[in-house]
Design a protein around this nucleic acid. Structure first.
Length: 498
RNA sequence: GGUCCUGUGGCCGAGUGGCUAGGCAGAGCUCUGCAAAAGCUUCUACAUCGGUUCGAAUCCGGUCAGGACCUCCA
């Protein structure tokens, strides 16, 4: 069974064949660290995290490159040469690099909270000015860029004569050239469709670098092309990012790299869809973002409570990555409850001892149930191979939850399922939930704490045995006040969760 | 205006020709000192109008509604 991915370039699902057998080079557009990440930003990084996890699980050696945009591109291209980062730094009265550091740290913290594995290389735009300048020089030499007043622009019209500018985003070049939209400061450009490779910095601009064309700063698209080329080569396997980056960002990347390297940079272009809120994209345009810090703290008018990073991760995993996902506090609450149920079943499954089960007595075996479980588990890989259908993976795992809970309650005897199947359940849950989907237990308790809990549970058990319900209820009630819930299991055991 | 996408039950969402998606919420039952869980059963679907087909949520066309991109955007 082979992996199929939806390639935005062809708008089709294609069998994934890496350029070099066994190796995958993947570039994902990272954040612009001029401000705090919001919920919408969580999606691509979680998406490409489980994609990289799955590729590794399939045995590929993955080099995952994700940049940090710390050079800042134009607030609105064509107007004043205004750098997002410089502007914000002035506002916060700090050094631009201080600002960049602050938000980079915050971003890294959030990624860790989401249990995202760090990329193998996380290059910064400011650290690759030389590479960008070199690339721009190559493009000028090839005749596809021109200099105007210390800025350099890519000549889209010329490129389009011999190349398909718009092949990724489905843009029609004639429409782009004929667009009627008028922006100020466009006089330098020969055509409205042209985009900046290098922008001359006005005197007050703080972030500036020397270049053959004078002091300035790089255009937005060139950094990704330069860094992807440097670390993954002229051609690599996967380029990822949000759908909103398809045009102009990725389209322009293709043009730049094609001119420089004589090849289309990435073989497969993968794009995640947006998180919406009330049906509208969460983002700057609607000013409807909810910051990740607000999500985690619950400190936002639209939130009825705080949501843990794992709840958000699970919420995102429940939807296919190419579908929009509509946010609401209600939907998050549902995700939180679902995850809790799934995870508690998994925790019990982990502890389940199948070794003592008698495997031989076939008359005890529930063959139908066994078959059902095996079938559900076997489908998991096919789902992931079908363009990473995490929603279906979770649905199947959920179907096994009642089986696990029934074993827990003694409604299904452990030995009615072959020990091999139990073991397979254990490994499958571990591999899919933890290794591939990247979910983890949110509360890590210390041994001391667990010991204290055990003691309390013992005391409560004794009290219950003596029908001293006053004591047993007191323990349960006070723990509940601390956010710890005790549950009397059917087997007589007492379990707890926080 | 151009290009493209979507419309599934109270909510979030899988699903592209015939088979219960799943989660959350609701109802009933069981278990239970109480509680919480859990198990079992169950109610609300496929925007709309036509067409193709033995058969359509799924394919085709019209209509309506929403959205994305075209400007920074994950």
């Amino acid at each position: 069974m082979s992996l199929k991915v939806h390639n935005s370039l062809t708008r089709k699902k294609e069998t994934f064949v890496p350029l070099t057998p066994g190796y995958v080079g993947m570039y994902v557009c990272g954040p612009t660290v001029s401000g705090e990440s919001h919920l919408g930003h969580a999606r691509p990084y979680i998406t490409f995290d489980f994609i990289s996890r799955y590729l590794r699980h399939q045995g590929y050696k993955v080099r995952y490159v994700r940049n940090i945009t710390d050079a800042g591109h134009f607030e609105e291209e064509g107007r004043e040469a205004e750098d997002k980062i410089t502007k914000k730094a002035l506002l916060e009265k700090i050094e631009p690099m201080e600002l960049v550091q602050k938000y980079t740290n915050l971003f890294h913290w959030a990624m860790k909270e989401f249990n995202n594995i760090e990329p193998n290389i996380e290059p910064t735009a400011t650290g690759h000015i030389v590479e960008q300048v070199n690339m721009i020089e190559k493009i000028i030499a090839a005749g596809y860029a021109y200099v105007a007043n210390g800025s350099v622009y890519f000549d889209v019209k010329k490129y389009a004569l011999t190349h398909d500018y718009g092949k990724l985003s489905g843009r029609v070049i004639e429409d782009l050239l004929e667009t009627t939209r008028i922006l100020e400061g466009q006089e330098e450009k020969r055509d409205k469709a042209d985009f900046a490779l290098w922008k001359a910095a006005p005197p007050q601009h703080i972030m500036r670098w020397r270049s053959p064309w004078g002091e300035g700063f790089p255009g937005w698209h060139i950094e990704c092309s330069a860094m992807a080329t440097k670390y993954l080569g002229a051609e690599f396997d996967i380029h990822g990012g949000g759908m909103d980056l398809m045009f102009p960002h990725h389209e322009s990347e293709i043009a730049q790299s094609t001119v420089c390297n004589n090849s289309t940079p990435a073989k497969y272009w993968l794009h995640n869809n947006m998180i919406t809120i009330g049906g509208k994209k969460m983002g700057k345009s609607y000013n409807n973002q909810i910051k990740l810090t607000e999500m985690f703290s619950g400190d936002h008018p639209l939130l009825t409570q705080a949501f843990s990073p794992m709840t958000i991760r699970f919420f995102i995993l429940q939807t296919h990555y190419r579908s929009t996902l509509d946010f609401s506090s209600e939907a998050l609450v549902a995700a939180e409850k679902g995850l809790k149920r799934l995870w508690e079943a998994y925790e019990f499954l982990k502890k389940l001892d199948s070794k003592n089960a008698v495997p031989a007595s076939t008359n005890l075996l529930d063959e139908e149930l066994d078959k059902k479980i095996l079938n559900l588990l076997n489908e998991l890989e096919a789902f992931m191979n079908d363009d990473f259908n995490t929603a279906k993976v979770l649905a199947n795992l959920f179907e096994i939850v009642p089986v696990i809970n029934s074993i827990k309650d003694g409604l299904i005897k452990v030995d009615s399922i072959p020990a091999t199947t139990i073991e397979l359940m254990k490994t499958s849950f571990r591999i899919y939930l933890e290794e591939i989907l990247g979910l983890k237990n949110t509360t890590e308790n210390t041994e001391t704490f667990n010991g204290v809990m055990e003691l309390l549970i013992d005391i409560r058990k004794e009290a219950k045995g003596k029908k001293d319900f006053a004591t047993s209820d007191k323990i349960r009630k006070q723990l509940a006040g601390l956010g710890i819930n005790l549950k009397d299991e059917k087997t007589g055991d007492i379990s707890w969760s926080s």
